[in-house]
């Protein structure tokens, strides 16, 4: 491009017109950087998100629950891969991104640093965490960057199953014995507030929000998305007779919104900056998984090289 200022104006006009940006299009360096940051954090979250749930696969109470959870966790691995692929179209390598995760340089959703103490936590994660992810990802399916938006469309199709399997677990426990119901309520009490934090700080305190909104990556504010999630969830909690742990929760006839109490942002900051209950364990688990999978990658590469040598051709890298 001959003139960056002109290119930038043209770029912003395209965004304003609702066009999508594709990998080979000119884009401001800052747009590229912000998207790499956002998409890689999102991909890392899908990958780390498998850990709290993976913790319960071997202990699922029935075969039906085990199959459901296994399939959900497998989907999350797929989500990570879709988004890594999308991020790679911005000129960054997957190895680089994974390295940033394993060395602790990259962030991921802070909610995955909380422990899954009981089976009910698996229900709460599907219902709240995937529920919140659906609200966020439905918005991102209209993001201005084509590969990101397309990954989100694919992901959104799978998330409803995640949410429903979680909600079904909670509904079953809530209708069970008093001890089962207590277990469900305890999970709600522990996961509700961290789930609200998933949408990120209030927009006035969110350093990246304005820029991402101006470039059409985000189409709604963190606060709008959070409100939408609360509005959807209140009725679902009532239907199965579980109580959201917020005494300030009240319905506003005028706005048709459920108002909620103040969020403890100090806790959010602590967890996102490494001081959550399980930050160290999560990173250690990812590093161990990566290291113990090394022989598989090496064996596959050696096999491919051998086959290529035998056939006299070159190894295909797709």
């Amino acid at each position: 491009m001959p003139d960056d200022a002109a290119a930038q104006r043209e770029f912003e006009a395209r965004i304003a017109a609702g066009e999508t940006v594709e990998p080979k299009d000119w884009m401001p360096e800052r747009y590229r950087k912000q998207l790499i940051r956002m998409m890689s954090q999102h991909a890392h979250s899908e990958i780390v998100g498998m850990l709290p749930e993976g913790n319960w696969i071997t202990r699922a109470p029935t075969l039906r629950r085990k199959m459901g959870l296994l399939a959900k966790v497998q989907d999350e691995a797929g989500h990570g891969l879709y988004i890594y692929c999308g991020a790679e179209t911005l000129g960054v390598s997957r190895a680089e991104l994974i390295d940033q995760l394993l060395t602790g340089k990259a962030k991921y959703a802070s909610i995955f640093n909380y422990p899954t103490l009981t089976w009910a936590d698996i229900g709460a994660i599907g219902w709240f965490v995937d529920g919140a992810a659906i609200v966020n990802q439905t918005m991102l399916a209209k993001a201005s960057y084509g590969p990101y938006a397309r990954a989100m469309i694919r992901i959104c199709k799978e998330e409803n199953f995640h949410k429903r399997q979680g909600y079904e677990i909670m509904a079953t426990l809530a209708a069970g014995t008093p001890a089962q119901k207590r277990m469900a309520q305890d999970a709600v009490d522990r996961w509700w507030w961290p789930s609200l934090m998933m949408f990120g700080p209030s927009d006035k305190d969110s350093p990246n929000s304005a820029e991402l909104t101006r470039w059409g990556v985000k189409r709604k504010s963190n606060d709008e998305l959070r409100q939408r999630f609360v509005n959807l969830t209140v009725a679902q909690a009532r239907a199965i007779d579980l109580t959201l742990p917020d005494p300030a929760l009240r319905y506003d006839e005028a706005t048709k919104d459920w108002h909620f109490g103040p969020i403890d942002w100090a806790e959010f900051d602590r967890v996102i900056h490494g001081d959550g209950p399980l930050n160290r364990e999560r990173l250690a688990a990812r590093n161990e998984a990566h290291a113990s999978g090394a022989w598989v990658r090496e064996a596959a590469a050696a096999y491919a090289a051998k086959r290529a040598a035998e056939s006299g051709g070159s190894a295909a890298a797709a």
């Binding site: 497998q74 797929g78 879709y82 596959a300 590469a301 096999y303 491919a304 797709a318």
Partner: peptide, 23 residues
């Protein structure tokens, strides 16, 4: 549908099935 990483064409095909065609 999307991209995959793989050491050879056969592995790429299997990865593509696992990542993009689970349903």
């Amino acid at each position: 549908a999307g991209s995959v990483h793989a050491v050879d064409a056969e592995a790429a095909l299997q990865n593509a099935r696992d990542v993009y065609a689970r349903r």
